[in-house]
Computed example of a mutant assay.
Amino acid sequence: MNLPVSPPVEPMLARLAPSIPPGMHYEPKWDGFRCIIFRDGDEVVFGSRTGRPLERYFPELADGARRELPARCVIDGEIVVLTDGRVDFGTLQQRIHPAASRIRALADASPAVVVVFDLLATADTAMLTRTFHERRARLVELLAGSGFPFLLTPATDDHARAAYWFAALEGAGLDGIVAKPFDLRYQPGKRVMVKIKHERTADCVVAGMRPYRGGSGVGSLLLGLYDDAGVLQYVGVCGAFAASSRTALATELSPLVTEITDHPWGAGHGRVPGTPNRWNSGENLDWVPLRPERVCEVAYDFLDGARFRHTAQFRRWRPDRTPESCRFDQFEAPEPIDLAAALDLPPADRCRPRPQPAGP
């Protein structure tokens, strides 16, 4: 691969802000797998944030890059799956699978798309030192004739429209807004963009804990909520514990450690986390069952179906709440919205695979 910008490259990142700043370029915040795509003729690399190539998990995207992208380019984007006009993060996660046959079946059933939002190189020209305003204009030109699986992200410099997107698009599975200064240079690995995300709180049952992998104490707490049938459902984990409190928290919760046979998740009903083990520093443990007697308040940004999409953040203990009172009815579902209409996306045939000509 002989490009002016070569893999691996860390993507440019964003820092969190409490509100949408004025006077910037605004885009919806897509929640999928971030990737930088390198194409040099038939050679294609989809680089992830972790450095692990993603092309084997998304064969339809690698094929699409050879078909739709300029012959030599480097672009930045987000891999997403759209189901019924909504970002489907759960289906996307299933694509990270060891079996090629399973990956291909999922690709056929729910093909992914790449929402493109930046340009790092084109032909023999590196674009890293160009302003974002220049990069965006050139990106629009390059993708003007492209179709599935590449979609240029909608964008605006209208603060009011960005505020509308922030309020409305949660109903289509998006989780906020990204703001970029017009004169921003591409800075790999630096948090120089701005992201604005929803944050809400919920009261959850603490039903397990995971050891901190980097040392001693608690790394995260496993959270549950009761459904209408009275079954404790696993909804995710919370973290954000200071190093000084991890060991103390483990000591505080140790009286609640129980056998999995005595735990609500031991019967395997509903959604449960991974295989449980008793806490033992000599083993590679997954999670430790706790009697579901304590309640904590957590902050979260997005409820995807009946689970937190991302790690929630611990806020405080709630001794005034009983575990049985922690139910799903505390959540207010966002109003569903047609993603294509709200963002003026291209017609549906631009967001699905094109029929390929039959062979000879």
Rank of each mutant, 00 (worst) to 15 (best):
P8V: 01
V9P: 04
A14Q: 07
R15D: 10
G23E: 15
G23H: 13
I37R: 01
R39V: 01
G41F: 08
E43I: 08
Y57I: 04
E60S: 09
D63Y: 05
D63R: 14
C73A: 08
T83E: 15
R86G: 05
G90R: 14
G90Y: 02
S101G: 08
R102P: 00
R104K: 14
S110F: 13
P111C: 03
V115P: 01
F117W: 11
L120F: 04
L120V: 01
A121R: 04
M127N: 03
H133D: 12
R138G: 01
L142H: 09
L143K: 10
L143N: 09
A144S: 15
S146F: 05
D158E: 13
D158K: 02
V178E: 02
A179Y: 05
G189E: 07
M193Y: 12
K195F: 05
T201H: 12
V205R: 06
M209H: 10
R210C: 09
G214H: 11
L222A: 07
G224F: 01
D228A: 14
G230V: 03
T247E: 12
E252G: 03
H269W: 07
H269V: 12
T275L: 12
P276C: 08
N280F: 12
N280W: 13
N284E: 12
V288Q: 05
P289G: 02
L290T: 00
R294S: 02
V298H: 05
D304W: 03
G305N: 07
R307W: 00
R309N: 10
Q313A: 12
R316P: 08
R318W: 07
R327L: 01
R327D: 09
F328E: 10
F331N: 09
D338E: 09
L339P: 00
A341K: 14
D344R: 11
L345C: 09
D349H: 15
R350K: 15
P353L: 00
P360A: 14
P360L: 14
